[in-house]
C-alpha cells in the first residue's frame, strides 16, 4: 500500500545528518532532441557523503543534479532518498527538505538577509522564535555577524558574503540533502579558496549528503569524498575517491581531465604524518612543517629552501622527525600500494 506523501517527507526530513540517495537508470530526453541529455545514470550516494560531479560544460552534470529536486523532471528511471521514491512526492514539499545552492546565488533582493534565510522555515510553518534563533545560529555558522548582517539587503553584501548567505539559506531547515551547482564558480580565486575551506569545515560538522557540481577538477579533489567524472550524456567515466582517481585514472578521458601534475595533486591529499619520517637530527636547518600539513606543502618547502631535509613538528610544536624528497616519494608509492590493496579487497568475492 502506498504511504502518504507526508509520512515519506517526514522520514526524509528526519535524516538531518544525511540521507542515502539512489539514482537508478535515470534518463532525461528533451522533446525534439535525438540524443538524451542524461542517459541511464545510476549512482548511490551514502549518507553524509560529499559527491562531486565533474565534467565539461554541457555534459549533463547539472541536469543530473537538478533531477534530484525535480527542477528538471526525469524522463525515465527512479530516484530515491532514504528509500523513498521522490517522483511520487509533491515537488514543492520535497524541495523544502533539499538544500539548493546555485552559482548565481539567487538571493531575493527585496528581502533582508534574515528574511531570505527564513523562507523555508516559514514555508514549513516554524514558529517566529525558532526561526529567529535558527537565523542567528546559521549566520554565525557561515561567519557573518548576525547583528551586522541580519537586517541588510543582498545588494549591500559582497559576492563572497552573498554566497555565504546562499549556503546559510539552503541549510535553514536543516535538510538531509544539499544540491550545489558550482556555488563558488563566480567568486574570485581568493574568495573561492576561503569559501571552500569554510565549506569543508562546515561539512565536517553537519555531515549532509551533498551533490556538488563543478567543472573545476582541482575543486573536486579538494572537497569531494568521491568524484564522479562525467562525459557526454552524463556517462560516468570513473567514480571513486580523489586519491584513487589521481593514482589510477580509468581511461584517457579521465587522465585528460586530471591534467598535468597528478602526483603533486595526490601529495596535496596526503598528510605529513602518514609518511615514514627520518631522524629529527637530520633536520639541520630551521625549516619546519606541521604533521597535519600535506606532503605537497612539505615538498614545496624543500624546494623553496633547497635544504636536504626539513623538520616535522607536531601540534605542540616539538620536533618529531624529518622529511626528505626521497621519503616523500616513498610515501607517495606506499599510498598507491595501499589504494591498490583496498581495491583488490573490494574486488574479492565475499
Amino acid at each position: 500500500m502506498p504511504e502518504s506523501t507526508d509520512t515519506a517527507l517526514t522520514q526524509i526530513a528526519s535524516r538531518t545528518d544525511g540521507a542515502r540517495i539512489v539514482l537508478d537508470r535515470v534518463s532525461k530526453v528533451y522533446p525534439g532532441q535525438d540524443a538524451p541529455a542524461v542517459e541511464e545514470f545510476s549512482m548511490v550516494a551514502e549518507p553524509g557523503e560529499l559527491i562531486m560531479f565533474v565534467g565539461p560544460s554541457g555534459c549533463g552534470k547539472t541536469t543530473t543534479m537538478k533531477m534530484i529536486n525535480r527542477i528538471i523532471e526525469p524522463s525515465s528511471g527512479s530516484i530515491t532518498i532514504d528509500g523513498r521514491d521522490i517522483l511520487s512526492l509533491d515537488p514543492s514539499e520535497l524541495r523544502r527538505h533539499i538544500g539548493y545552492v546555485i552559482q548565481q546565488i539567487g538571493l531575493f533582493p527585496h528581502m533582508t538577509i534574515a528574511e531570505n534565510i527564513a523562507v523555508v522555515p516559514k514555508l514549513l510553518g516554524w514558529s517566529k522564535q525558532r526561526t529567529a534563533e535558527r537565523i542567528d545560529e546559521l549566520l554565525q555558522t557561515v561567519q557573518l555577524d548576525p547583528g551586522t548582517f541580519a537586517h541588510r539587503y543582498p545588494r549591500q553584501l559582497s559576492g563572497g558574503q552573498q554566497q555565504r548567505v546562499g549556503v546559510a539559506r539552503a541549510l535553514a531547515a536543516n535538510p538531509p540533502v544539499m544540491l550545489m551547482d558550482e556555488p563558488f564558480g563566480a567568486t574570485d580565486p581568493i574568495t573561492r579558496e576561503k569559501l571552500q575551506a569554510e565549506f569543508l569545515r562546515l561539512q565536517e560538522s553537519i555531515g549532509k549528503t551533498i551533490i556538488f557540481v563543478t567543472h573545476d577538477f582541482d575543486e573536486a579533489i579538494k572537497l569531494g569524498d568521491r568524484i564522479a567524472v562525467l562525459s557526454e550524456r552524463s556517462q560516468i567515466e570513473q567514480f571513486d575517491t580523489p586519491a584513487a582517481i589521481l593514482a589510477e585514472p580509468a581511461n584517457a578521458y579521465v587522465r585528460s581531465f586530471i591534467g598535468h601534475g597528478a602526483a603533486l595533486k595526490r601529495l596535496a591529499l596526503i598528510p605529513v604524518e602518514t609518511a615514514v619520517l627520518g631522524a629529527a637530527s637530520a633536520a639541520v636547518d630551521h625549516h619546519r612543517i606541521a604533521t597535519d600539513d600535506s606532503l605537497r606543502d612539505a615538498l614545496d618547502l624543500l624546494i623553496v629552501t633547497g635544504a636536504p631535509a626539513i623538520g616535522v613538528v607536531d601540534r605542540s610544536g616539538s620536533l618529531v622527525g624529518s622529511l626528505t624528497v626521497e621519503r616523500i616519494s616513498t610515501a607517495l608509492g606506499a599510498d598507491a600500494t595501499a589504494l591498490a590493496a583496498t581495491r583488490s579487497d573490494e574486488g574479492r568475492p565475499a
Binding site: Y100, F108, L123
Partner: peptide, 10 residues
C-alpha cells in the same frame, strides 16, 4: 536565478 532558487526552495 531568483526564480530558480525560489522554485528550488519549495
Amino acid at each position: 536565478s531568483v526564480l530558480e532558487s525560489a522554485m528550488g526552495m519549495g
